[in-house]
Simulated scan of single mutants.
Amino acid sequence: MELTIQELAARAGITSRALRHYDRVGLLAPSRVGANGYRYYDVGAVARLQRILLMRRLGMGLPAIAEVLADEVDACDGLRAHIAALEEERDRIERQIRSVRHTLEALEAGAEPQMDVMLAGFNDHYKDEVVSLWGERAYRLANDWWHGKTLDQQRAWKQAAEDLVAAWVAAAKAGISPTSERAQSLAARHVRWLSQIPGTPTADGDRERSIEMVKGLGAMYVEDPRFTGMYDDAAGAAFVRDALQAYARTRM
């Protein structure tokens, strides 16, 4: 079975112009071109288009998609990876649907929605990062812990974090040494703060992994722009890193 370019475009919900563009950039060539110049696409081409559209929906650009397709040895492995990604996205959307339905039903009944349920499915953007660093268990425990808090408790936690950051910034601006007693006291406070989060090595009492985590976080504060600015500037982030790493080496 084959589809013309117009038929394929209509069924895929895209334009024939897009299909021609995919051909020009080497992503998807027609299976054959008829004597009349018409482009035809067989099952293999449609399967490839399906994968291209999936990756586009996941936010990938055409050059990145081309690299994925070029590097693949087995198309079935690629399809399995896409199924896993789609299942994860489905689970996230289902959590969002449940949370919005909970809010709607509570409001219609004149009741107050539960904060932890209202935000389920909307805060998973750090999941992959947390899982890669500390594992699935750490993510699950920390996520459950956070959503088990009331709104006031969440606000109090965030305020404590902001107060800690402000203390770090003030110490860095004071020009003290990262190994000074004031800096090391802040490092101890930072580690105690981390130990309140279930699933982290500090919360589990795992000394070796805790040392590794504290050193790694210190490095991340300098290397990751999301955190560098939080400590005012690169010098402030470097001060926090050096203090945490000195604390991990000598006091943990």
Rank of each mutant, 00 (worst) to 15 (best):
S185D: 09
Q50G: 09
P198Q: 06
A10S: 11
I176G: 13
A172M: 00
N123Y: 09
R24D: 15
P225T: 06
V131M: 08
A138R: 09
A29M: 08
S16Y: 05
A171M: 00
A75D: 13
A170R: 01
G135A: 05
G218K: 03
A248W: 02
L217E: 14
E108R: 01
G218I: 07
G26N: 15
K149T: 00
V46A: 11
R39N: 10
D163E: 09
A64N: 06
G59H: 07
R39S: 14
A47V: 07
A172C: 03
E72D: 14
A187R: 02
R90A: 10
E105R: 10
V165K: 10
V68C: 04
R24Y: 11
G110D: 02
A156H: 13
G110E: 00
R39Y: 07
E67D: 12
D116V: 00
K127T: 12
L27Y: 13
L79Y: 04
H102T: 01
R48A: 07
E223G: 10
A109I: 01
T4R: 01
W134R: 00
I5F: 05
W145E: 02
D224S: 10
T179E: 08
G13I: 04
Q153G: 04
I197L: 06
L217I: 13
L133I: 11
H147N: 14
H147P: 10
L3I: 04
E7P: 15
A183W: 02
L79N: 03
D232G: 00
S31A: 09
E2N: 09
I5R: 00
W157F: 11
V43Q: 11
L141R: 03
L19Q: 11
A109G: 02
H21D: 14
A35M: 08
Q114V: 00
E94D: 15
P63H: 09
L151I: 02
D124A: 04
K173E: 00
L62W: 08
L79I: 05
L194S: 14
N143H: 08
G34Y: 05
R209D: 14
K127N: 11
F227Q: 02
L164C: 07
I65N: 01
E7F: 05
S195T: 13
R98W: 00
W168L: 02
R56K: 07
Y221P: 08
A9G: 02
M55V: 04
L49R: 10
A237D: 05
V33D: 03
M60D: 15
S195R: 12
I93Y: 08
Y139K: 01
G61M: 07
R226E: 12
R90G: 12
D23M: 04
R90Q: 11
A70N: 03
E72A: 08
R56A: 05
E108S: 06
S31Y: 06
R48K: 04
R209M: 14
G236L: 00
V240F: 06
S195D: 15
M230A: 10
V73W: 10
Q96T: 08
L53H: 09
E181N: 07
C76S: 12
R24P: 14
V240W: 02
E108Q: 05
I52S: 11
L49C: 14
R17G: 14
E212V: 04
V68A: 03
V169H: 02
L133D: 12
E223C: 09
W193G: 12
L133M: 05
M60E: 15
R140A: 09
L28W: 11
A9S: 05
Q50Y: 01
L27W: 13
R56M: 07
L217R: 02
P198E: 08
G199A: 13
R98L: 00
